[in-house]
Design a protein around this nucleic acid. Structure first.
Lengths: 174, 174
DNA sequence: TGAAATAATAAATATTTATGCGTTTTCTAT
DNA sequence: ATAGAAAACGCATAAATATTTATTATTTCA
């Protein structure tokens, strides 16, 4: 049975949009989607994806995807575009410095947010790199701050945008 | 016995400069430095530090420190400044884009390199965020490329610098 | 086609990590 | 100084994860 190829993107998707704390949990989520595998296989899958379990600030754990898997390889671009265009609830703050946007998230959510940001396929964002609770996004040199503001308007909660508004109006406003 | 406070920075130091693949290994390294603790305690320590085990491309595993612990809290600034000013052997390449420096490292070493870069406390580097094999460093807007070149000259191997030299001489050379 | 090589997987097991609980130490406020 | 609370810790064990081994499916190519 060679389901691995189709399964890995699904795992990425699950981990990105859910808080999965163990391989058993993941197994159940996969089962729902028609993939029946043992924990042993998941251990290998996760190693392959360079997934990693990290403590959340809720006291538990959560699997997140390491950056390089998404930054360079990007073999999973077109999963099952589950990007709900709803505003991203895990975002805490946003700031801009030069061609760089820094988004702080609740711990464990950076990966998911970066993923969703990627999925927008905006010409204004050249690439993202998530940590555990921080996303760096590199901005296209030709994009204006107004472009960015518009982009994030449909992506981040109003409260976050409000707090960051001055960032988009300062100098360099093209 | 309340050694935790003094132990945590040592753990950060050990994980930063060594490839530690299990809590047993870490325990041994700590013992060498005079900290005798059980695995149970290390499990708690590592959770507290938001440390995480990630697959290396050597087929094994390695603990790395999550970014935010170092980015925001930074309670461990002045550990035992074990920053050997020797050139960083894990660095593979360096590139500059705008106010951003991107350093590629061997897998698992980004965290350590970012840590050492932080330790330089250069005014030219505002902050770093490590992934598994990539470090993003945000550059002070007022720093010149020449400043950067000088900075990295004493930090990265000559071969890496050579390959990146043109990056510092192109446009925007102040 | 069919033999050999490769890859994916499960089952069982080994290894590693997390945690409940009881004890001791440290801290805090009186 | 001392009671009470909080934090740190070890021990034992539970829970989770990684790996060994064997099996089956898939690919390759003669």
């Amino acid at each position: 049975m060679k389901k691995r190829k189709s399964r890995l993107p699904v795992i990425v998707d699950i981990l990105t949009h859910n808080s999965i704390g163990s391989q058993e949990e993941l197994s159940k989520q996969l089962a729902i989607r028609g993939y029946i595998v043992t924990q042993a296989t998941l251990s290998r899958d996760l190693k392959m994806l360079r997934t990693t379990k990290i403590a959340t600030d809720m006291g538990g754990y959560r699997y997140i995807i390491a950056d390089s898997e998404r930054l360079s390889n990007e073999p999973f671009a077109k999963t099952q575009n589950t990007v709900q265009s709803s505003l991203h609830p895990a975002a805490l703050s946003l700031s801009v410095s030069g061609n760089l946007v820094v988004i702080k998230t609740r711990n464990g959510y950076a990966s998911g947010l970066a993923y969703d940001l990627d999925m927008l396929e905006s010409q204004h964002i050249l690439g993202t790199i998530p940590g555990a609770d921080t996303v760096f996004a590199v901005v296209n040199e030709t994009s204006s701050r107004k472009d960015l503001f518009n982009l994030f308007q449909s992506f981040l909660p109003q409260s976050v945008l409000d707090a960051a508004k001055h960032q988009f109006l300062g100098e360099d406003n093209e």
